[in-house]
Amino acid sequence: MTDEARERSIKLTDPRTLRAYAHPLRLRLIGLLRRDGPMTATQAAARLDDNVPNCSFHLRQLAKYGFAERVPGADGRERPWRATTRYTSWDDDSDDPAMKAATDQLNSVMLAVFVQYAQDYLAVRGDEPVEWRAAAGFGDALLHVTAAELRELTEEVDALLARYDDRAADPARRPAGSRPVQIIQMAVPRGPVPPDDRRSETEP
């Protein structure tokens, strides 16, 4: 992994950290810090329609596990928080029961958060300019691919999205008229796992 990749992402490798991250408010807090931070617990509570003690507690928990950190404040009083990296990653290929349970828990919480994001958008969609209504929205495609092809496709999508990373880190690079857009990736296999195909190369 390159130094740049290390700076961009924090990888979760143990069940305890995965479970610590798997909390709806913590996911929303870290998403807020990555998008609009740094900010104080008071500012975060106002943005998320929550209370300050609750946000303060969960920000400290995020800091405990390396997701967030304090930075100097402008007035020397309440110090704001910032995200330590732009992304969080983890592997879903472990056969360890504790890891499988922890990743399942995190994926379930993330799905609920993503659904809430979509519902929040639908609640205001009618007031959006027509060009944004036409550009945004939902869609799906049913593909017939192998596991290797699916992984390759996911990596290609990740590389495509990475083209816009510099705009997240540097507001000066954001073109006029741009705004934050949440791209949510879901690759959900349908149907049973196919049997292993061991046909001879000479078989038609």
Score class of each variant (00 low, 15 high):
residue 1 M to D: 09
residue 2 T to R: 08
residue 3 D to F: 06
residue 3 D to R: 05
residue 3 D to A: 14
residue 6 R to P: 03
residue 7 E to T: 11
residue 7 E to M: 12
residue 9 S to Y: 06
residue 9 S to F: 06
residue 11 K to H: 13
residue 12 L to P: 02
residue 16 R to V: 15
residue 17 T to A: 10
residue 18 L to R: 03
residue 18 L to G: 02
residue 19 R to P: 00
residue 19 R to K: 10
residue 21 Y to N: 07
residue 22 A to Y: 10
residue 25 L to F: 03
residue 28 R to N: 08
residue 29 L to E: 01
residue 29 L to F: 01
residue 30 I to C: 02
residue 32 L to A: 11
residue 34 R to E: 14
residue 34 R to D: 11
residue 36 D to N: 15
residue 37 G to W: 00
residue 37 G to F: 02
residue 38 P to C: 10
residue 39 M to Y: 05
residue 40 T to R: 05
residue 40 T to H: 08
residue 42 T to V: 14
residue 43 Q to G: 10
residue 43 Q to H: 11
residue 46 A to G: 14
residue 47 R to W: 08
residue 49 D to R: 14
residue 51 N to K: 14
residue 51 N to W: 08
residue 52 V to C: 04
residue 53 P to Y: 06
residue 54 N to E: 11
residue 54 N to I: 06
residue 54 N to F: 09
residue 55 C to K: 02
residue 55 C to M: 04
residue 60 R to L: 07
residue 60 R to W: 06
residue 63 A to L: 02
residue 66 G to H: 05
residue 67 F to A: 15
residue 67 F to P: 01
residue 70 R to I: 08
residue 70 R to E: 10
residue 73 G to K: 02
residue 75 D to Q: 05
residue 75 D to S: 05
residue 75 D to F: 09
residue 77 R to N: 11
residue 77 R to T: 13
residue 78 E to C: 07
residue 78 E to N: 13
residue 79 R to E: 14
residue 83 A to Q: 02
residue 83 A to M: 01
residue 84 T to N: 03
residue 85 T to C: 09
residue 87 Y to C: 08
residue 89 S to Q: 10
residue 90 W to F: 15
residue 90 W to E: 01
residue 92 D to C: 12
residue 94 S to R: 01
residue 95 D to T: 09
residue 97 P to F: 00
residue 98 A to C: 01
residue 99 M to P: 00
residue 100 K to W: 00
residue 108 S to R: 14
residue 108 S to F: 04
residue 108 S to Q: 08
residue 108 S to L: 05
residue 110 M to A: 15
residue 112 A to I: 05
residue 114 F to Q: 13
residue 115 V to A: 13
residue 115 V to T: 11
residue 116 Q to Y: 03
residue 119 Q to F: 04
residue 120 D to T: 12
residue 122 L to Y: 09
residue 124 V to A: 13
residue 126 G to D: 05
residue 127 D to A: 15
residue 131 E to L: 11
residue 132 W to D: 15
residue 132 W to Y: 09
residue 138 F to A: 01
residue 138 F to N: 00
residue 140 D to W: 07
residue 145 V to G: 03
residue 148 A to P: 04
residue 149 E to G: 15
residue 150 L to P: 04
residue 155 E to C: 05
residue 156 E to A: 12
residue 157 V to W: 01
residue 159 A to F: 00
residue 159 A to W: 00
residue 160 L to S: 06
residue 161 L to V: 11
residue 162 A to F: 00
residue 163 R to P: 04
residue 163 R to A: 14
residue 163 R to N: 13
residue 164 Y to F: 15
residue 164 Y to R: 14
residue 165 D to S: 12
residue 169 A to I: 08
residue 173 R to T: 10
residue 174 R to T: 02
residue 174 R to S: 01
residue 175 P to D: 00
residue 176 A to G: 09
residue 179 R to T: 03
residue 180 P to T: 01
residue 191 G to A: 03
residue 193 V to Y: 09
residue 193 V to P: 04
residue 195 P to K: 08
residue 197 D to W: 02
residue 197 D to S: 06
residue 199 R to S: 11
residue 199 R to M: 07
residue 202 T to W: 05
residue 202 T to Q: 07
residue 203 E to M: 10
residue 204 P to F: 09
